[in-house]
Design a protein around this nucleic acid. Sequence first.
DNA 1: CTTGCCGGGGT
DNA 2: ACCCCGGCAAG
Length: 336
Amino acid sequence: MGVICLFGVMQGADLAGKGWKESLSASYSSSTSGNWSWDASDQSVPSTPSPPLSNDAGKSFLLSSQSDDNIEETESTHFLFEDPIPRKRKVGGQVVAYEKTDLLNSMKVMFKCLWKNCEKVLSTSSGIQRHIRTVHLGRNGDSDYSDGEEDFYYSEIEVNMDTLSEGLSNLTPTSPTTSGPAPVFPVLTCDVSRSEPTHMIHTPLSQSAPSALCHIRTDHAYQATTPVSIPSMPSEPPHSEDRISVSWQSPPVIYKGLPGPMTQIRTVSIGEKRQPVNHTTVSKTHTNTTSTSKPTTGTRKPRGEAKKCRKVYGMEKRDLWCTACRWKKACQRFTD
DNA sequence: CTTGCCGGGGT
DNA sequence: ACCCCGGCAAG
């Protein structure tokens, strides 16, 4: 980080210098030996995910990552930054462990016709295009000609088999310790189930928590008009794999790198995150759950022992402070 | 009370 | 990106 370099430079450049160096040198020599322990402070830096989850997945993760040095670096960092929660889940009696890649594997891309009253779902884009061409647009069936218009009438949906069933099991025990009135929010159900009879997994969750929403980004409304000039259609190139917008409610706790409800967040992700602006159903429940507590800062960085610019120079010599201190930010000069 | 600094706003 | 400050937690 910049701090380190800064220090390095300053230490060198400042050798002949004066000022705060002196007051520092003591603490320097003691703690230093070259590398300036950002790693030590690193622990308090808000970038460590992996909260003490109450579920066994979290535990086992912590255990393994701490006690087992064999885990290769990339692996753990991958966990940390990509998918903080390696999942272990019971599916049909078996314990299934998977991570992101597995998740991908379990994704299935389907193409759903959006024509009114047509719920056709095909597994190939060409198939759905042909379907739309022939059935809805009345084009010549055997010609392959496509002006791309079909794109407007189908949407690519990703069906995640796991997530569907996972949402429920994941939700139940939201560790009450982590985030007070834990919202049940990051919920995941998809319209997909509606159009795909095979996926009619109606989880206990989706029933008990109707607030869950996950809608396909396209809306059938536009179909009322003539097909030619679609006003503000969510028409993206059909190749973009993001079509589903899994919109989950941000939990009422600020993720500050520490124990947070990061648990279920790694949904399918897709498309831009959409606030459920026009969806009244959700916002209602949302406010209900959140309104109680202001998302208080999860954890503040514990106050460092070192004297900071303010203390050292005093208010009157404010211009000697490091910039961060002047901006009332975390002091860069006297880190801990 | 003071101090450190997060979060957010202004330019 | 830079600058500033309200407000809060910790001491």
